[in-house]
Design a protein around this nucleic acid. Structure first.
Lengths: 143, 143
DNA sequence: CTATATTAGTTGGTATCACAAACTAAATCC
DNA sequence: GGATTTAGTTTGTGATACCAACTAATATAG
């Protein structure tokens, strides 16, 4: 799946995107490790920055089984990064909110990711970065 | 970390690349699941297509602990996808080779990933795809 | 209004996967 | 030849994913 890197001129779109994807994942993994956050925990906190979804909504956003969300939120709650609150409109449901601690952590993490992405793309000119942003922004699905 | 999707025009390079990365990972995860291969198993087989590395080399390529490679290769070997062979030049060392079964599986998987990437990028024109390939190819590190 | 069906989230079971520390066997160094 | 280093494995631990089954709350049907 990952092409022979010596043959850059023949790199397919698939190989280019797959390699880029793993490069970005490697950054997320390293920066996350520095902040004691797994990638999935960082994604969770990222979602919670601007909303308080239900467990079911989180399962949809993250494309995970609801039982996986239970475990993920359990562990984050145990660390004081998130908290569950009752949903007044539905006794079965809970809402998940980020705590101040969690928000601080994800902001720091985001700053470091920005820095590492800047390093990753330092060989591109300003216009090239804009072009990459525009192209990438047109194909990745939205939350 | 993942920006408000309604604000596409203001998407940063970081957010664009992170979202793209997860979109590609989602494809790899789904296609992998269809072929009963985890992402890391697919990466392993991808590396083994054109070389027979040592365990240590695999740890470097995949940026994993050597004990993780032991487990990964154990499970792949148990499924008949790879095999360990002795290294004649170093009694401590083993070489890992893909089997015919493993090669067939990774070829199929790669074909499906190509198809899904084509779907992901169907909104881009031919020249835009070339441009994205070139830009991405210039920033992702090489194996 | 009550019984039945559906939904939200949890629990238990299982497997994969990651790292750290410690171990064994082989190779290297002095 | 003994000490040190290296390659890979083993053990322990924890995170993370899915499936099936469960409980409690809500919605629906009669």
């Amino acid at each position: 799946m990952e092409a022979d890197p010596a043959d850059v001129a023949e790199l397919s779109l698939t190989d280019a995107l797959v390699q880029l994807s793993f490069a970005v994942q490697a950054i997320l993994g390293r920066v996350g490790a520095d902040h004691d956050l797994s990638i999935i925990q960082a994604r969770l906190l990222g979602i919670l920055r601007d909303r308080e979804p239900t467990m079911a909504a989180l399962a949809r956003y993250l494309s995970l089984d609801k039982s996986s969300i239970t475990g993920l939120v359990d562990r984050a709650e145990r660390r004081g990064l998130v908290q569950r609150t009752a949903d007044p409109s539905d006794g079965r449901s809970v809402r998940v909110a980020v705590t101040d601690k969690g928000r601080a952590l994800i902001e720091l993490t985001g700053t470091d990711v920005d820095r590492q992405i800047a390093l990753l793309t330092r060989n591109l000119s300003g216009p090239e970065r804009h072009r990459l942003t525009a192209l990438a922004g047109r194909i990745a699905p939205r939350l």
